[in-house]
Simulated assay, not measured.
Amino acid sequence: MTPAGLPGSLARRLPAAAVLTGITLAPFVLGPYVVGTLSRILVLALLAMSVNLLTGLTGLPTLGQSAYFGVGAYTAAIVATRLTDVGIVQLVIAACLSALVALPTGWLAVRARGVVFLMLTLAIGEIAYSAAVNWKTLTNGTDGMSGIPPVVPLPGMPALELDGLVHFYVLAVFLVLFAMVSLLMATPFALALRGIRDNEKRMQAIGYPTRKYTLTVYCGAGALAGAAGALWTSVQRFVSPGDAGFELAALALLAVVIGGSGSMWGAYAGAAFVWLTRDYLGNLDVLAGRGPLLLGLLFVVAVYTLPGGLTGTRLPRPTRRRAA
């Protein structure tokens, strides 16, 4: 029992339930700008969750998830303008195409570890950004893609014109994907990925095909990032090469580190912290134009004062017992 007289599991779930209730009721009490900001935080949280599957669960720090996010965003924009405005169709096509792009790039990346893997994923992200800039016949170059129609969640439903309705759509998709990732975290596959993170050579010694496992989770993380990109298109109704750039990848990795590596709720907490620090605190009169600087300072403070992240779920390192 906790000091408040509640079971420990219930006490841990109360903050999450309170946050979820607040996000759900936000369109009824807050203005369009704040509601739109909450929707963007949910999208960034999904991107951070895809990073967490690689960084927190598998031990592969990545700066390349913005590439698959951009693929999903551009795919959803093209489908919406040329094929259909049904959101579920855009989501499925964007996720599948992102996973398909992640397959050959991941086949190359998962052969490396540590800093080499990080640099390879950074290169993949830069290639995606360059493609978005130069493939003008498909992406419209640096001008981006505009004129995207409002999303229709399911066939037969009306188009979502209001920010509050779009927010409910994004929240519903977020909860479904979050539940899917949570179920994945409780499977033997996730346990094998944790084993690869902790001691890959030992996992290979007992017969696990570690490269196949890492490639599988890499493609799954790419699909999740692509779905987040499709939601981004539904919220923004505009896509530009910056949506596949380094800044977004760095923000997602930063959200994972600040929120707590290995925690999916930590990914959301970190995404909210990063977004609000950069776009809200950074726009105050005394800090105008210094959002990135403030974010960097707060990141250093968080690393030293909260080594387990905001959720405090990072596993401590094992210590050797002293000899008697």
Rank of each mutant, 00 (worst) to 15 (best):
T139G: 02
I196A: 04
D143K: 08
Y304W: 14
T233S: 13
T37P: 04
Y280K: 09
I196P: 01
G245Q: 13
R82L: 12
A76I: 07
T137L: 14
C96F: 14
A230R: 07
L284E: 12
M49S: 11
A102M: 10
L108C: 11
M264N: 14
A186F: 04
S9M: 06
S240Q: 13
T37G: 12
R13V: 01
A249K: 05
T137C: 00
F273W: 09
V89I: 14
M119R: 01
R202L: 09
R111K: 11
R82Y: 11
L253W: 02
V79K: 05
A230L: 10
V151E: 01
S234V: 09
L20Q: 07
V274F: 05
S39V: 00
Y213Q: 04
P241T: 01
A288N: 12
L253N: 03
A190T: 00
L162H: 14
K201M: 13
G5P: 02
T37R: 05
V235S: 13
A244M: 03
A223F: 11
L30H: 10
F28H: 08
G226D: 00
A4F: 14
P241E: 00
E200K: 01
A77E: 03
L120N: 05
G114L: 06
G64L: 08
I148C: 06
G125C: 09
P158W: 02
A179K: 08
A45F: 01
V71R: 02
Q90D: 02
P188H: 03
G87K: 11
T313M: 13
L193A: 03
G262W: 09
Y304S: 09
K201G: 14
T37C: 02
A4R: 13
L10R: 14
L63T: 00
M1G: 13
G312C: 06
L44P: 03
T84F: 12
L215F: 01
P241D: 00
L310T: 05
G229L: 12
V92D: 08
G260Y: 11
L47E: 01
L83Q: 08
R320L: 14
